[in-house]
Design a protein around this nucleic acid. Structure first.
Lengths: 121, 121
DNA sequence: TTATCATATGAATATAAATTCATATGAAGG
DNA sequence: CCTTCATATGAATTTATATTCATATGATAA
């Protein structure tokens, strides 16, 4: 297969260890959910309290429609749920696992910052 | 501020707890890195072994150029590093923290799958 | 039942991100 | 040197994603 520069043995070994394409895609899709500032903010807000759509819009100073679209994405991904209360829809975290994923990212960032602060002696 | 439906007190409370915009952005940017299948695959491959560019391209069956572009992104984000060896560039994980972030996502997915499997009794 | 509020949604638009293509760079070997 | 290999890079293109705009839905209160 390899013509010029051969690494077929490493490739085979690594290839054997890789999760399925489907899983890797799902994993990408999961992280993609956290890869948008608006969605991150919504999730952080929901860490503190369940909230209705217009409260989130007001909090983030964004249009209700934009928030609604993002809420749908988060709901489809089952990261959040909602319940009706009168004519408002109240959204809340579906799963505390979300919190730990985000916190792990948070930790990574704050550790990185520490390293960078060390540089300027 | 709120005219029709008032939730200013909740908004204030939540607002006070939110991290800074800058941090939330950085967090989004970090997760964005994991939110692409190509980059996820590259990182998974590097979990197993350091690899040169053409090995990764061959492994993922993608063009060398596409891989190179993604490697640059990962390197800028300091998730990976590289060293020269002759005329090949060998890339490797910069930080084991990356592994735990991805694994956390992985766990979330596999737990979700379990739930879904329960449904079909 | 009509008007209003809270939300959702489809289509259009704007924006960003990934991939390709052509080519540049830089190291080795002849 | 000159050629080849391994990689990088800029620009063009493609593709995906977020936001806006206009409007629909669905619940409540008058």
């Amino acid at each position: 297969m390899a013509r010029k520069h051969d690494h077929s043995s490493v490739i085979e070994a690594v290839s054997a260890k890789l999760p399925s394409d489907e899983l890797l895609c799902d994993l990408g899709d999961l992280f993609k959910l956290f890869g948008d500032t608006t969605r991150i903010k919504i999730l952080y807000a929901l860490f503190e309290s369940e909230l209705c759509v217009c409260a989130i819009a007001e909090l983030l100073k964004m249009e209700q429609s934009a928030i609604s679209h993002q809420l749908r994405i988060l709901k489809n991904a089952k990261l959040i749920n909602c319940r009706r209360s009168g004519r408002t829809n109240i959204y809340y975290l579906a799963d505390d696992h979300v919190r730990s994923i985000i916190e792990q990212g948070f930790d990574h960032l704050t550790e990185e910052d520490d390293h960078e602060e060390d540089v300027q002696a």
